Amino acid sequence: METSGLLERPDGERVAWKKVDGDGPTVVWLGGFKSDMTGTKAQALAEWAERRRRGYVRFDYFGHGASTGDFAAGTVSRWRRDAMAVMAELTQGDLVLVGSSMGGWIACLAAMVIPERIRGMVLVAPAPDFTQKLMGPEIPPEGRAALEADGVWMRPSEYGDPYPITRNLLEDGARWSILGGEPIPLEMPVRILQGGADPDVPWRHALELAQALKGEDVVFTLIKDGDHRLSRTHDIERLIRAVEEFF
């Protein structure tokens, strides 16, 4: 049975969560930028956890989904803190982190703080450093002008209405960069699932992460015709098989 609640933060904001109690390590879902915990993959994992009696926690970052906060005020620092608070207050023992898109970056940042608790990670179209390496280079001249003048640019989206990208988000993201320098000091097993037809996270970007990880037990799976969401039935089955490797 899945329960839900709100995690109170020191600043008065609330992080919405859902939890399934079960055996073995707890699977923690870390969603993507502007996504929420009701998405197809997050829901499929909840159903798997209930069916298999596995521990599972999913949540919404500040400014996302059912959590409070203004999305435009969100930063990588803030979303990382949300993830760390959820793990500290809602879980015990070993964890399996499942990070999608931006959630892959957050998963790596969290694992660097508590590596002793992480049994493994499954990353779906991981987007580390996306504010610098993926989003930044695509900002058009008018977007840069808006950021300079107002500190915010309304970025068009294929998935809905334009949404705010702030100068604060970009500058904060740069402080959490993990690519392009020393090896990422993570040695737990990692499974990466990446679509070859992903328009948002190029497969070479995800491969760069795989190669940067210090650990040797890293498996990179390229789904040649896969998109960014990887939410088709056979994609979901592949995700669940990857998670089950850690039980």
Rank of each mutant, 00 (worst) to 15 (best):
L45V: 13
L45T: 02
L45Y: 02
E47A: 15
R51N: 09
R51M: 07
R51Q: 12
R52P: 01
R52Q: 10
R53M: 07
R54E: 07
R54C: 01
R54P: 03
R54I: 06
Y56H: 09
R58N: 10
D60P: 12
D60T: 06
D60I: 02
F62R: 05
G65S: 11
G65D: 13
A66V: 14
S67F: 02
S67H: 00
G69L: 06
D70V: 08
D70W: 05
G74P: 14
T75M: 04
V76I: 15
W79N: 02
W79E: 01
W79M: 07
R81I: 04
D82F: 01
A83G: 05
A83I: 01
M84D: 06
A88Y: 01
E89Y: 05
T91A: 00
Q92C: 11
G93L: 03
D94R: 15
V96K: 04
G99F: 03
G99Y: 00
G99I: 01
S100R: 09
S100E: 08
S100I: 07
M102V: 08
G103F: 05
G104Y: 10
G104E: 14
G104N: 14
W105M: 08
W105R: 00
A107I: 03
C108S: 12
L109R: 01
M112F: 01
M112H: 01
V113E: 07
V113G: 01
V113K: 01
I114G: 00
I114N: 00
I114Q: 00
P115S: 13
R117P: 00
R119D: 11
R119L: 12
V122N: 09
A125M: 14
P126Q: 11
A127R: 00
D129S: 08
F130S: 11
Q132W: 05
Q132I: 10
Q132M: 14
M135K: 04
P137N: 15
I139E: 08
R144M: 08
A145C: 09
L147K: 05
L147P: 00
L147C: 10
E148F: 11
E148G: 11
V152S: 04
V152M: 03
W153F: 15
W153N: 03
M154P: 00
M154K: 01
R155W: 13
P156E: 14
E158I: 12
E158D: 15
G160D: 14
G160N: 13
G160V: 12
D161F: 11
P162M: 10
P164G: 08
T166H: 06
